[in-house]
Simulated scan of single mutants.
Amino acid sequence: MARRPTPDHVSLTVRVPRGHEGFWRIIRDLDAAGPWTVGTVAERTNAALASVGDYVRRLAKAGICTVVEERPSAFKPVKVYRLTERPMLAPRLRRDGTRCKPTGQEQMWRALRNLGTATYPELALAASTDEVAIDPVAAKAYIKMLAKAGYLVAMAQERSNTPVLWRLKPSMNTGPLPPLVMRTKLVWDQNEGRVVGEPRLEEARS
């Protein structure tokens, strides 16, 4: 039986949840114009109303937003909010309003932007903090995915037992949010809202 031809290019559509970062951008935009509700935030995202409400409750418990009014409705009063703080990056909060530790990818991306060039051991060292230590294996894997996506360029040919020195391309220093390596082995740029690099599709084996 003849094998089905494999196209050179495959169109891949990825549905990426807006998440807390997306909610925060919407909230900041709405708050710049005046008071807002959970419903008005949910109208601008593809997430469920409950997911938006959960994040807003975290913001309220952290004191980052506050209720300024309660509007009557058929079921229960609708809370109207205003921000008390306006950080650029979305606050990462637990359900009780306490702040989460930064992720390893956040720390590695911040270190890359500060260093400009680094080997994976250097990146692991620079990105480690008292709260979160970065394993060199994790740094090597993150660098590998960013290099495949076109963020990094090797400064020299790879040699055995000598880590490659990588440079962050100025054109790919897209912003403070770390490019996320997804479970599907894609790199998602949170700053530009797009997949960066060529996704590698593998045929499933029976």
Rank of each mutant, 00 (worst) to 15 (best):
M1T: 11
A2L: 10
P7V: 02
H9N: 04
T13V: 13
V14N: 11
V14E: 02
R15Y: 14
V16G: 00
V16Y: 15
P17C: 09
R25A: 03
P35W: 01
W36T: 03
T37P: 01
V38N: 02
V38T: 07
E43L: 07
T45S: 14
T45F: 11
N46K: 14
A48Q: 15
A50F: 12
S51N: 15
D54G: 09
R57Q: 14
L59S: 08
L59V: 02
V68E: 11
V68Q: 01
P72G: 06
F75L: 09
P91E: 05
L93N: 09
R95S: 14
G97F: 06
G97N: 05
G97V: 00
T117D: 08
A118G: 03
A118C: 02
T129D: 00
T129M: 05
V137G: 12
K140P: 01
A141G: 13
M145Q: 15
L146S: 06
Y151N: 09
M155V: 15
T162V: 12
W166I: 00
W166R: 06
R167N: 09
N173K: 10
N173G: 02
P178E: 05
P179R: 10
R183E: 12
T184Y: 13
K185V: 03
L186C: 14
L186D: 01
V187F: 08
W188E: 05
P199C: 06
P199G: 09
E203P: 00
E203C: 02
S206E: 12
